[in-house]
Design a protein around this nucleic acid. Structure first.
Length: 413
DNA sequence: TCTGGGGTCCTAGGACCC
DNA sequence: TCTGGGGTCCTAGGACCC
């Protein structure tokens, strides 16, 4: 039996832990740059705020209904996620952290998985303040669907059997894990409107529509496991840092600064997990929503002659790529840097040229990075990152780092 | 004015090999 | 008139997930 533990309205719930006055009120959390609503409390859903709605489109609606609007606070959510996982891990011998707010638990062999799930749910709420729902089933896909039903029926915990026709009829086809917008349109065209129809459909027609991936999903829904638990997350193959700009960038120098910053952030990610990048890509784009403006987007990739985690080299190469693709005369909205073909530093090939491994250079880079990490922006930064940062994203309604910053620890009166 | 960010996997098609 | 057969590797694009 597989269980999927999913935090309810996770970002909103994190905010509520530290501001209990938000309980019972409509609350939404916005994406980066205060762009879209990415988390909504039940009250906000009831008002009719759709998932992913651009904030500027729902601003009036929010004001009218007294919705509390918050910028996203990823440090807080990341830390709360870690706490939830640490509680879950006490109860399940095998656990897979699937996303920031979801984990699969292998409850195979547990005598009464439903009552254990209810106990887990109580403990998570008690110890972290976060409400969760748990769906159970013979496969991951069934547990996901079960979770969906548990939320819909306000049940907390629910077991979904592959043979339960009426329950599976209650899961719309687009709510099946692995069936997105495109596939659900094509499935509906052949009369498949819910999970039960889907499980019953001839597998050849499913394969014709969505290939082997969709066929696997179908089998999973019928109770045949095709997806394994992945306890140790396989190492990342690529990593990306990209941001929309707070205001359009029209100046090459500013763009260069932004790209340098993204390159350094991406490099820090791979350094923290001990990997090296063998290539990188830089991309830039204008605002695709502005039909009245000239559009341009481009990307270029480069293979490094030797895998590296050296921020200086990565920034130099990112700038070279940017030079190649940048065209003046456009109002750019977004840029990003992707580090490609990551591999653990321990796999590093013997070097043909020694210059990059110069130990003094290495020590220097490590020292700067350590200072930058310890004292954040105030400690040290690379020259290419610039100091103006006109392009920085907006996050005007962000709550404090309650659990991650000494200065932000909540005060109890 | 304003529209997120970070990933994975699969497939088709082209280039190239013998 | 008529243009093989069997591979690999890479990339771009499309689908999905949160």
């Amino acid at each position: 039996m597989i269980a999927l533990a999913d935090c309810n309205n996770f970002y909103v719930s994190c905010e509520r832990v530290f501001r209990p006055s938000l309980e019972g009120r409509p609350v939404i959390v916005l994406s980066n740059n205060d762009g879209c609503a990415v988390a909504r409390s039940n009250e906000a859903k009831a008002i009719g705020i759709p998932m992913g709605a651009p904030f500027h489109q729902i601003k009036k609606l929010c004001e009218y209904n007294g919705v509390v609007v918050l910028s996203s606070n990823y440090e807080l959510y990341g830390d709360m996620s870690r706490r939830v996982v640490s509680v879950l891990a006490r109860f399940a011998p095998e656990l897979e952290v699937y996303s920031i707010d979801e984990s699969f638990l292998n409850l195979t062999g547990v005598p009464n998985p439903l009552s254990l799930s209810m106990h887990i749910r109580d403990q998570v709420k008690r110890w972290t303040g976060i409400p969760i729902s748990i769906g159970l089933g013979a496969t991951k896909t069934l547990s996901k669907a079960g979770n969906r039903l548990a939320k819909k029926m306000k049940k907390g915990c629910l077991i979904l059997n592959a043979t339960d026709e009426s329950a599976l009829n209650g899961v719309a086809i687009e709510d099946v894990w692995g069936v997105g917008r495109r596939l659900s349109i094509r499935l509906r065209r052949i009369g498949v409107r819910n999970a039960w129809h889907f499980a019953q459909a001839p597998s050849a027609s499913i394969r014709a529509i969505g290939g082997v991936t969709l066929e696997r999903t179908q089998r999973e829904l019928s109770g045949i496991p095709c997806l394994e638990m992945e306890e140790v997350s396989s190492p990342r193959k690529n990593t990306c840092c990209s941001r929309s700009f707070g205001k359009p960038v029209t100046d090459f120098q500013e763009m260069e600064e932004a790209v340098a910053n993204y390159a350094i952030r991406a490099t820090r990610k791979i350094r923290s997990e001990g990997s090296l990048a063998a290539g990188l890509q830089v991309f830039i784009m204008t605002n695709r929503f502005r039909e009245d403006q000239a559009q341009y987007s481009n990307a270029r990739t480069l293979a490094l002659d030797e895998p590296t985690d050296d921020p200086i080299r990565i920034v130099q190469n990112a700038k070279r790529l940017l030079h190649n693709i940048y065209r003046s005369g456009f109002a750019y909205k977004k840029a990003g840097v992707i580090l490609l073909d990551l591999a653990p530093a321990s796999f590093r090939q013997g070097l043909l040229f020694e210059e990059y491994q110069n130990p003094r250079r290495r020590e220097f880079v490590d020292a700067v990075e350590e200072v930058a990490g310890r004292y954040r922006a105030g400690g040290a930064f690379w020259g290419g990152q610039g100091i103006g940062k006109q392009w920085q994203m907006r996050r005007e309604m962000r709550t404090p780092g309650y659990t991650t910053n000494w200065d932000d620890i909540p005060v109890v009166r």
